[in-house]
Design a protein around this nucleic acid. Structure first.
Lengths: 131, 131, 131, 131
DNA sequence: GTGGTCTAGACCACG
DNA sequence: GTGGTCTAGACCACC
């Protein structure tokens, strides 16, 4: 699994780690039952304090994504995939909703918003073929 | 002008205030040359620490939206309307973009995203006629 | 509110703190909307590291018992009372259930278990009048 | 003798093993003088680290339940039955006591607690006929 | 003043 | 080896 953190983007490091673990689960890069990299290893990889990784993993346990196996490590729970996919969709929906609501409140009608969406979709498509 | 802050939503209060001043300018509720309520009055109205209002106003000055008039108060600058409209559009675009990009990354294609957009638009429309 | 921790009883300190906050809420010693003692004050009172108190308070936020008010402190949420009472009843039920199940499995019948319960109730009553 | 461990329930595995040995003794499944399965066999059966089984057996020796017989294995001591029965009753009593004390402290009177006990007893009875 | 994040390093229980 | 707890102390954003 690939992880990357940026200490200067304002988002807490432990949150970046937790989010990326969830992404890896949602995308299948981490399979149910598999072990997540150990706290110490992940900390070394990211050049981050082990406590920071531990906090991310602790939050993931609270979310039901990770399960501790005593003395062995942390494994992906069976429900993890569902949880992570659901959370990701909620995130997308939430951002869309707030953007569109903002537009309505600013006086745009549905067609103007659709136009905005199409503009962004084209830009995305362009960026993907020519990154 | 109508202002409202919520201490529980995670967004800094000074930012909520600044944003709402900008909204009022963008929507015409605050006209060029008009004065914004004094720090003390605004703080009283919102039941908020005056320092917090002062910080919001300071940021608005830095953004070129407010201009201090000695002994009188803070007035809306001539370029404020343009700035606020532009910023608002940028905000909407930004949220749309990040939502759509997230969806793409999660494997959705353009049509699936359009469907999501339509769902949210209908919900918005419904919420507006029956809030 | 009265709090006491014992660093040597095996239960993590942050958990002892969180539990006692919940008890105080359940018993009415802490009222909805009231602020919990600040991290630093509580840490001083208990002669414990502030991080430890912070962790307890963080867990209480995750449980929906505390709500952060930026720059001001942590307040008891409206749902806190219900949550804490419910949790306490669940705790009692759970212990009773496991004790009784254990007894059944060890071959005791319902009447033998009732006798045990009555013995413990008398001892409790005696201890309460003459602690 | 039947043994089963669960790595996910928070109770140390060596403790689960020790407890189940004691249960087997208390219930007569293991007789005085009989040998307990070897560390290696037990470890294989449970798919567990041999060190873990060794630790369980070590604790059982410290408790006077097992006695090492040079070159042969570990046998159930004569006083084991008594010890295990006693311990089991203590466990039941302790849980009952703490549950009832908790209830008293939460303001319940003896009759309310008796009602709780009856509820749990009925549930247990129901679960036993239709597990 | 408040809480939140991060680091560094010690100690422990478990396997 | 694993994760969990706790301490100490620094720095930051917010009010």
């Amino acid at each position: 699994m690939h992880v990357h953190v940026d200490a200067h983007n304002g988002i807490p490091i432990y949150e970046q780690i937790a989010r990326q673990v969830k992404y890896s689960v949602a995308s299948g890069a981490l399979q149910v039952g598999e072990h997540v990299p150990s706290v110490r290893e992940m900390a070394g990889r990211l050049a981050v304090n082990p406590n920071t990784v531990a906090r991310a993993y602790r939050d993931l346990q609270a979310d039901g994504v990770l399960l501790p196996i005593r003395g062995t490590g942390l494994s992906i729970t069976p429900q993890a995939v569902e949880l992570c996919l659901e959370e990701r969709l909620d995130l997308i929906r939430g951002r869309l909703r707030s953007a569109l609501a903002e537009g309505r409140q600013a006086g745009m009608d549905a067609d103007e918003l659709r136009t905005l969406v199409e503009e962004e979709l084209s830009q995305l498509a362009a960026a993907e073929v020519n990154p």
